[in-house]
Nucleic acid binder design. Structure first.
Lengths: 349, 349
DNA sequence: CGTTTAGACCTAAACATTTAGACCTAAACG
DNA sequence: CGTTTAGGTCTAAATGTTTAGGTCTAAACG
């Protein structure tokens, strides 16, 4: 059996209250008493029971991080930073994966482990305004990544603008026929129209819809006609998907001037498919990504991509969460982290 | 305020005990009573307080996963699987990062959040037998990754054999001068001797020592003299390190016949440096990795690497942990997961 | 010298759940 | 008809912490 506060108290000849005081270092405790207690503490190798503490004061010191797919390098970077920065605040991090089961997000938002966790950082895929709103009394939540709502706090980048900027960059390199890789998959039977509606039943993820919108905007502004055949749909943002779909595309279509991949991971798959087809990047076609994951500067060739300060991104998320945890009905805030284009060899004419 | 079991009991006109029975679905409960309770349950939107439950029955339903560096794709894959498979057993996963602070492992093993977690899966860097042994009464622990000890359960692959097999594969391709990337960094001032001692104060991680040993064994068996200049030291297994150090190596030495990188991530950096130097892989030199991360089949060229069934690996870890949790003084077991070489273009003559 | 005050410490209750053990009821048994 | 039996439910205790409120002591004050 583990030592409890009572055992320590007995050994030190004081009351449990005093032990608690020493541990939490709050009230006045005579130095000699404190020393005695600390002696007993280490003698019994005391470690507080978090469940009991959590029960008593309603806080577990733990937050949850819910991401769609932990396999993505992007997820790994977010996780890395959340764990590191949360640790600085003395919070533990519990991790959840939502993509495998679609309504896991809802579970997390409403019931789930709500009581074991003081707050939730959620990277939404399916949740849009309706979802966040329907759930009853929410735990403190911060959404990361773009999604249309103003019910809970959110930190995001301007996906539309970023995609527009990147498309513009490709246009500036003289590209006209620019393929977009990772646009929302249109359910069989329906047309491509209305894809950007942003309603609850719109196809694809919020990010894919927004980036598609930015891509189309840039084309329109440049007076380049939008060719639906250049939108290569893909919902599951993993490299194998991109490699397959781009490889197939190459056999069926003329080579576009550039591939704008909605994720660095997708770009990795695309580069692989292009290499396999004997297409030289950047001599024959350009490739751009999105996210600036650690790996992209080591891709072959190094990848032009959309960068943003991820550490700042995560720090803001934690700030917003802390705010929310301190005052459960503070007004929801939205923080937009600035982005920029990082030009590397993959788009160098 | 959230509804408690008492509130539900009052609404359903039964005692808390009966509600508890319904929730945990154990004892005989009359169907009509059960229905009434379930009605009340959903009416009040009841969600159990995990802290209280954890306090009462000494289990939190949560395990901890401690990895050295969450940024590594390998870590992401492990995390992904642990979360997925733990979820199947109804366990939550709490995540920790150990590399940033060296003695975090010890903290986790001895005190730490021990009481909030029913078990710990630890990928050790610094912990070797002495460390695991000194700590007093341990929580249920499973070590993942090779390390010399028999105090706690462990799942691993045979690092020495795997590295030997891969080196042999490169020798079979006709290579003689094979560089090893990721060997333990020797502290300034000491010689390279005794690097493989495996004692607590040996440099580098356990994995790097073992893989180095396998590499040397294969050379010796083939009668190829071991050239210390071909061992490219690197402790932090990230791509940027490999790119830098390999790039530097290329300017100072003759091109080796092959690069055996102790991690796919390192191989990625190496490939990038070789590409930048205008060296063609596999025409001018070969490159091999270790781990078969998802990305390696999309590297340019696709990477030959050491593969093992990661899902089986993680499943075993969870099995061992469950065993340990059920019977805290069961004999520690060690599971070795078989490995194999996956040949891809990067080592195709 | 009596009263206040502040420091140092303590007792008891509260947190939400589960479990051991007790208690009913009605059917089955001899 | 009395006794057993089993199902179905309840009461009370226990888990380890923290906190509200209280007690005690000794110094400071008038």
């Amino acid at each position: 059996m583990r030592a409890t506060v009572k055992d320590v108290a007995k050994l030190a000849g004081v009351s449990p209250k005093t032990v608690s005081n020493v541990i939490n270092g709050v009230v006045f405790v005579r130095p000699e008493t404190r020393a005695r207690v600390e002696q007993a503490l280490s003698e019994l190798d005391y470690v507080p029971n978090m469940s009991a503490r959590g029960l008593r004061n309603g806080r577990s010191g733990m937050i949850a991080l819910a991401l769609p797919d932990l396999l993505r390098p992007y997820s790994a970077e977010i996780t890395h930073l959340v764990v590191e920065l949360a640790h600085e605040r003395g919070w533990g991090v519990q991790i959840e994966q939502t993509a495998a089961e679609p309504n896991r997000e809802f579970e997390l938002l409403s019931k789930g482990r709500a009581h074991l966790v003081d707050g939730l950082i959620l990277n939404p895929v399916n949740v849009d305004d309706s979802a966040v709103m329907t759930a009853g009394p929410l735990p403190p939540v911060v959404l990361i990544g773009d999604v249309d709502q103003d019910v809970v706090s959110q930190v995001a980048i301007d996906n539309v603008a970023a995609a527009r900027d990147m498309t513009k960059h490709l246009l500036d390199q003289g590209c006209r026929r620019i393929a977009a890789v990772g646009t929302p998959e249109v359910p069989r039977g329906s047309s491509g129209a209305g894809v950007l509606a942003g309603t609850a039943d719109a196809p694809g993820t919020a990010a894919s819809r927004l980036r598609t919108a930015g891509y189309r905007q840039a084309l329109e502004e440049a007076g380049v006609p939008n060719d639906p055949a250049l939108e290569i749909n893909l919902d599951r943002w993993r490299p194998e998907g991109a490699a397959t779909v781009v490889g197939k595309y190459l056999t069926e279509h003329e080579l576009p001037d550039a591939f704008f991949c909605f994720t660095d991971t997708l770009a990795s798959g695309a580069l692989s498919a292009l290499w396999a087809a004997g297409v030289n990047v950047p001599k024959q076609t350009l490739v751009a990504g999105f996210d600036n994951i650690l790996e992209s500067q080591f891709m072959i060739p190094p990848l032009t991509t959309v960068d943003f300060d991820r550490r700042e991104f995560v720090r803001s998320a934690l700030d917003l969460l802390a705010e929310r945890m301190a005052d459960r009905d503070a007004a929801p805030r939205r923080v937009i982290i600035p982005h920029r284009i990082v030009e590397r060899t993959s788009t160098a004419r």
